[in-house]
Amino acid sequence: MYTGIDLLLYLQAYRLSAPEIIDNFFHLISHPFLTGLLPVLVMAVIYWCYDKRAGTYMAFSIFSIDICSHFLKLLLYVPRPWILQPAIHPTAEAVSGAGGFSCPSGHTTSAAAFFGSLAVVFRKPVFVPVLCILAIVLIGFSRMYLGVHTPVDVLLGLALAGFFLWLNWHLLKCIDRNPQMDWVVTLISMAIILLLVACVLFRPYPAIEGVGPEVVAHAFNAFFLPIGWFCGFLFGWLVERRKIHFTIPLKTAPRILRGFGGLLFLLVLQTGFSACFPPLLGIEIGQFLSGILLGLFISAGYPWLLCFVRKKRID
């Protein structure tokens, strides 16, 4: 099967003789913040301050794509390129952020989920989707240039993200036409997540030369974190639609104040949960519980707080 190892060797030959600034650029655009915390922060601000539906679309896309990406990593069980071909020598900085399995590329998939959903939400002005597509292409290419992913990994990540971006758009359009379907979507999503969890828990993981138990452990940790976020957001989204019904102010200043306040709350909670839950409950359960509470805070907790404060002011 074609994996593109020859392309990686070609890029490696160029990289070893290229100026260091090029490596630094690709390390910068591949930083985990761009495909990890930043998408959640931007999604939350859009949900609270710009458009609830747009924020919901971004949340559905970012979390569902991340879950399926890590599920496929555990299902396909593909080692990293330097294990498949010892002649591949990735950069040390890239390797430090490349735990777990190789296929599909997590950075590429997350970038496509975030920037792809952002491009759908902000289709005008046209430079926004153009810049988003450019970011996706550069991040995908960076993973090959740095030697941590093959072209197959990157292309599968792009295809996976493209499918879910399309699916979530039409799913939310269907809910717009039939608002009472929200609880059905929530239940089906939870059932699918349980099925995916059962698959990875009971799947045999045969020994592969060069792949230690820490690789499987890393893959499991990365799999459970977005599951918690998505489950929390889904439940809060349903509660908000049925009970809270928060509105977005028309003026810019209240939106900015709301966004800064929400981000401050979210970052404080994220720091506190990350410090408390994993050491007490273990990494998988701790990250899962932390994700549930943070996702719930975004979709329902902070909106409820906004409505409560507004009602107190009116009273």
Rank of each mutant, 00 (worst) to 15 (best):
M1E: 08
G4S: 04
G4C: 05
I5E: 11
D6T: 13
Y10F: 14
L11Y: 03
Q12I: 06
S17K: 15
N24C: 07
H27G: 00
S30P: 02
L34F: 15
G36S: 03
P39D: 08
V40F: 13
V45F: 03
I46C: 09
Y47C: 08
W48D: 07
R53L: 11
G55Q: 02
M58R: 02
A59N: 03
A59F: 03
F63M: 12
I65E: 05
F71N: 03
L74H: 03
L76A: 08
P79E: 07
I88L: 07
I88E: 05
E93R: 15
S96T: 12
P104V: 06
G106D: 05
G106Q: 09
T109Q: 14
A119D: 07
V121F: 01
F122Y: 08
F127H: 13
P129I: 00
V130C: 00
I136Y: 02
L138G: 05
S142R: 04
S142K: 04
S142C: 01
R143L: 02
Y145S: 04
L146I: 06
H149D: 08
H149S: 04
P151D: 04
V152Y: 12
D153Q: 00
D153P: 07
L160C: 11
A161Q: 08
G162K: 02
G162N: 11
W166K: 12
W166R: 06
L171Q: 10
I175R: 05
D176L: 10
R177S: 12
V185P: 08
V185Y: 14
T186A: 15
I188E: 09
I193E: 05
L194V: 13
C199W: 12
F202V: 13
P204K: 08
Y205I: 15
P206A: 08
A219W: 04
F220D: 12
F224I: 13
P226T: 04
C231G: 11
W237G: 14
W237P: 09
V239P: 10
R242F: 06
K243A: 15
I244Y: 00
R258K: 12
F265D: 10
L269T: 00
G272Y: 04
F273K: 06
S274E: 12
Q287V: 10
F288I: 07
L294G: 05
L294Q: 09
L296P: 12
F297Y: 06
A300V: 01
G301D: 00
Y302Q: 01
L305V: 00
K311G: 09
